[in-house]
């Protein structure tokens, strides 16, 4: 088969999975490698950009010395963190503590692998892709809870409590908005959601309220300011990460970028048309561009927002997010579906 320019065709999963078992296994491995490379480069660049942008907002230069424009600073940090001693505190409940953070990262990357990146670059086209992704996403705060709770530190304990409290305020709106997306697209397939956006308009335009609610709730879901209550530096030192040693902290940093990537790709798939765009560039470019813009927006919010208090987050969730997401659901039904 001729090598084609579109990167999606190299990992043309329908082509590979159509063959025998060997073909399928090779296909899956190639797919994992390609997506991991995309995700690592994207996450790394966004991590660098976050440091640079926030530095600009604060009259600083950010990293400048390691590599060109400080591009290698994050890599240097990662190497430093990974080369340090791994200490598990005496108070910690060892098995849970050792498992929680790696599992968090693994689950996040698992979701990253489940997402579709172009018409050909996707793992499976399950009819219930949206459901399975949000099932796993709702597991993440639970693992944050166990990570904080098992570390035996009181600050981490408070952070774990907060993580459950805050869960009540944003998990529901996320699911309601996802339900209205599914309703609009007529199914839970991510592929179907994008093709339905190709047929009509982007869902971000069709239901702006849902878009905004989803974006805010995702900020809370993935611990971005102003909802970074679990990791509130000025109150809880580092929240659930207070007692973790350097290698675990490296995992946590990686997790941060994984979640950023995950969130921004999800927003671009559900509301910004995913890989749709002018055809002079490959679909993969468009989805990454949209995710990148969403990430920049998240970073700008971090540079400017004050942190909310726990009770206020609950109040905000119940008084604003949930009613708005319900209104969005009803309006979607009345205007587009009925």
């Amino acid at each position: 088969m001729a090598l084609q320019t579109d990167i999606g065709n190299i990992a043309n999963i329908p082509y590979w999975t159509g063959g025998d078992t060997l073909h399928q296994v090779i296909g899956i491995i190639i797919y994992i490698i390609i997506v991991s490379i995309i995700f690592s480069i994207f996450g790394y660049m966004v991590g660098w950009l976050e440091r640079k942008l926030i530095a600009r907002a604060q009259y600083r230069h950010g990293p400048t010395y390691v590599g060109m424009w400080g591009l290698l600073q994050n890599l240097a940090d990662l190497i430093k963190l990974l080369s340090k001693e791994d200490v598990i505190p005496e108070n910690a409940f060892r098995p849970l503590f050792a498992v929680s953070l790696p599992l968090l990262l693994a689950l996040s990357i698992f979701i990253v692998l489940l997402l579709p990146y172009s018409p050909t670059l996707q793992a499976t086209n399950l009819g219930f892709g949206l459901l399975i992704i949000f099932t796993i996403v709702s597991f993440l705060p639970l693992l944050l809870f166990t990570a904080g709770f098992s570390s035996g530190n009181k600050f981490a304990g408070i952070s774990a409590q907060r993580s459950i409290l805050v869960l009540l305020s944003y998990e529901l709106p996320v699911l309601i908005v996802v339900a209205s997306v599914a309703m609009l697209a007529g199914g839970y397939s991510l592929d179907g959601i994008i093709s339905s956006q190709a047929a009509h308009y982007y869902f971000g335009l069709l239901m702006p309220i849902g878009f905004v609610v989803f974006f805010i709730a995702l900020l809370a879901e993935f611990e971005r300011p102003p909802f970074d209550l679990r990791e509130a530096d000025s109150e809880l030192i580092a929240g659930w990460l207070t007692d973790v040693s350097a290698p675990y902290y490296a995992i946590a940093l990686f997790l941060d970028y994984a979640r950023m990537f995950l969130g921004s790709v999800l927003v671009s798939i559900l509301f910004l048309g995913g890989w749709l765009g002018p055809s002079f560039l490959p679909p993969l470019f468009w989805i990454l561009l949209k995710a990148f813009i969403v990430s920049v927006f998240v970073i700008v919010v971090r540079a400017t927002a004050f942190r909310m208090r726990v009770d206020r987050v609950l109040r905000f969730g119940w008084l604003w997010l949930i009613p708005l997401s319900l209104i969005n659901l009803v309006m979607t039904y009345i205007v587009f579906v009925r």
């Binding site: 604060q58 530096d233 000025s234």
Partner: peptide, 17 residues
């Protein structure tokens, strides 16, 4: 003060400048 209520370092750096 802005640091304490969770605006990490933006207002702080402005004020310090």
């Amino acid at each position: 003060l802005c640091n304490d209520i969770g605006q990490m370092f933006t207002v702080f750096m402005w004020a310090f400048k």
